[in-house]
Amino acid sequence: MSDLSFAPSPPAPAPALPLLTSDDVVARMKALPNVRCIVTRVDPAEAVVVVLPRNLDLATRFYATTHTVPPRILPLEPGIELGGKIPCLFSNGDLWGEGGYAPTFLRALELGIAAEVQIDYAAIQPVLRFFISTQPFPAQFVIDNIERITRCCNALADQHSRDVFLGGIKYRLTGDSGFMPFSNLHQYFHEQVQVAPGDFVYEAGISTGGEDLTIEFSKSVGPLGRVYAFEADLAVIDPLATALAPRHNVRLEPVGLWSEAATLPFNHGEHGDSRVLRQGEGNAVCSLISLDSHVAAQPEQRCDFIKFDIEGAEPEALRGSVETLRRLRPKLAISVYHEPFEQFVEILDYLVNLDLGYRFYLSHHAPYRYETILYGQPPAA
């Protein structure tokens, strides 16, 4: 019996939500709470450091040698509360834990998810700029585009998605991503939009270390499916090829996806942030093609699922996928969190205006400002 016979039935679609006016959207955005917060100072004159209980003695000894007036050190325990807010593992710009600043910070994020806390970005900005919004959304963009924002909000299929969308805009206005409801869904595997056995997946944006997701896609589609994995950064192709070699249903494509065939400057980054440059000089060049041209060149001419995580090139790649979207209606998982921040609205607005019958969902998959994914569920065949 074919493995396909065991594929789970698709979940029932969510009921339609009432349409919102622009006034409704503004009111909802204003009312959205900051869902996660931490304390960095209880008193302006007193620094507080919250640590894992097992690190309490170590932290006490450490700060006694580094501070003339040591901070107050408290263990992170259920129910701990300071000034009416829930604390996390760092305070006043100081971080404590094994392995130095960055591993400690990431561990804090893990605990933050469990405790429903969030980062005080202003307090840690001097320490870890990578996680900070340094260029807030201009308020004028929201004023000028309120009708587009309302249209996009009404296109989202459930209330959680609407709150993520409006919370994402509120974050971009304030720099505080605590306004974005966090999702515990597995990123790129939404409960309504998932890769299925036998699917042909088009995945753009892998980079070294990102092949784990490609392998998950490979396992999900099974022997009857296929994963076309596109990566424009030639500096990582060889290690990717080695990592993916055992996956016989994966085709590694050493090109990027764009609106058309092109060769453009490229910036190779060390932290998964390599990107195509529209202008200026990069430290490399890359070859680009459209998804439409690749699908048309394959004998099967199939595309069942599209995943784009390409550091701001998503709008161009979508423009190069329009014929495939119209003809084949693949499932979608598109990153919408890259700069420029206007893309957060523009990507959804572009897809809505194609009027292809999709139901859209939005999930935010991290306790910081990155990893917001737009999912598209195509109309039933």
Rank of each mutant, 00 (worst) to 15 (best):
Q135L: 13
R129S: 15
R151G: 00
F131G: 01
V142S: 04
C152Y: 00
F137W: 15
Q135E: 14
C153L: 03
V142M: 07
L156D: 00
I143M: 11
L156E: 02
F141L: 13
N154I: 11
N145E: 08
L156N: 01
F141H: 07
I132W: 08
Q140G: 10
R148Y: 06
N154K: 00
C152T: 04
E147I: 13
Q135C: 06
L156K: 00
Q125S: 15
A139T: 09
F130C: 03
C153Y: 00
S133T: 14
S133R: 12
V127C: 13
I124Y: 06
L128P: 00
I143K: 14
Q135F: 09
I146Y: 05
F137R: 02
I143N: 10
I146S: 05
I124W: 01
I146A: 06
F130D: 14
P138V: 05
F130K: 15
E147K: 12
F141I: 07
T150D: 05
F141T: 07
E147P: 01
C152N: 08
Q135R: 14
C153W: 00
I143W: 01
F130Q: 13
I146P: 01
N145C: 02
Q140W: 05
L156F: 10
A139F: 02
I124T: 08
Q125V: 07
P126N: 13
R151V: 09
N145Y: 03
Q125W: 10
I149P: 00
I149A: 05
I146G: 04
P136R: 10
F137N: 01
I124P: 00
Q135N: 12
Q125T: 15
Q125D: 14
D144H: 13
D144S: 11
C152G: 11
T150P: 04
F131Q: 04
Q140H: 11
F141Q: 03
F130G: 10
C153N: 05
T134H: 15
Q125G: 09
V127K: 08
R129F: 07
A139W: 01
F137I: 09
Q140C: 04
R151I: 08
L128T: 08
A155R: 00
F137V: 03
Q135Y: 02
R129G: 14
D144L: 09
A139N: 03
I143G: 05
C152D: 03
P138H: 08
T134C: 06
A139K: 11
P136S: 07
V127W: 03
A139D: 06
E147S: 13
L128H: 11
T134K: 14
I146R: 07
F137A: 01
Q125M: 15
I146E: 02
A139R: 14
E147M: 10
V127E: 08
F131M: 11
E147V: 13
Q135M: 06
A155F: 05
D144T: 08
F137E: 02
N154S: 09
P136E: 07
Q135P: 00
E147T: 14
Q140A: 15
I146N: 05
P126A: 10
A139I: 07
P136F: 03
P136Q: 09
D144G: 09
D144W: 08
